[in-house]
């Protein structure tokens, strides 16, 4: 484990905690895309299939359980919690995310490290995570103004995979036969999708103004 990877995991954990804080503190999920949250739950459930079969470390297992539990808890809150679910922007969150699932699965069948059950689902989770933020970014542009916590949530979510890219570069030079081309290319695409958000987030931070995305 290198510092980039650890920083990436902590940033990812912070993003989840910020979202849980937003939902818990404001009892509202306005501005949050349920579709993106459902895609993340699917990403973790399909990526961590090796949770029971392949023990890496306590840290690895604990973090996997945290990500699975938190993503399911957020989906539950937005779908079932009597107060939170009322603030869901149902008519703004209209991205056809099933296409993202289908495309990722087809790509995973074609491009994977090994044509096996776990490997295909692992590749599927990598591809799906790369595009899972799209419904959220579309909702953001439609809903215009963004509350602070939601802005921070998306910022940390985008930053974590950027740190993972540094981790892959580091491992590529430090470890002999390290290759994670699938994760690395998907990670680059994933981070690139946040490019314009990062720009507007920086502008709002520099001008001490509210985060505004152009409609």
């Amino acid at each position: 484990m290198n510092i980039f990877r650890f920083a990436g995991d902590m940033t990812h954990l912070i993003s989840v905690l910020v979202l849980l804080l937003k939902i818990y503190a404001t009892k509202s999920c306005s501005g949050i895309s349920l579709k993106t949250q459902e895609l993340y739950a699917l990403v973790f459930l399909t990526r961590y299939l090796d949770l029971l079969t392949d023990f890496i470390s306590i840290y690895n297992t604990v973090m996997k359980l945290i990500f699975i539990a938190s993503s399911l808890a957020i989906v539950w809150c937005m779908r079932v919690h009597p107060i939170v679910r009322r603030s869901y922007d149902k008519d703004l969150d209209t991205f056809r995310h099933y296409f993202l699932v289908a495309a990722s699965f087809i790509l995973a069948l074609l491009v994977n490290e090994k044509f096996g059950f776990q490997e295909v689902f692992w590749a599927f989770s990598i591809y799906l995570e790369a595009v899972a933020i799209l419904p959220q970014l579309v909702l953001l542009q439609r809903s215009g103004n963004v509350d602070n916590l939601t802005g921070h949530y998306i910022f940390f979510l985008g930053a974590y995979r950027a740190l993972y890219i540094l981790n892959w570069i580091y491992r590529y030079f430090m470890e002999t036969h390290f290759s994670r081309w699938i994760a690395c290319i998907a990670g680059l695409v994933q981070t690139a999708l946040y490019a314009d958000f990062f720009y507007y987030y920086y502008i709002s931070w520099k001008n001490k103004a509210k985060l505004q995305l152009p409609a």
Partner: peptide, 10 residues
């Protein structure tokens, strides 16, 4: 799986 092939990341 041999070590380098395992998915040791999150």
């Amino acid at each position: 799986l041999p070590d380098e092939k395992r998915h040791d990341e999150l």
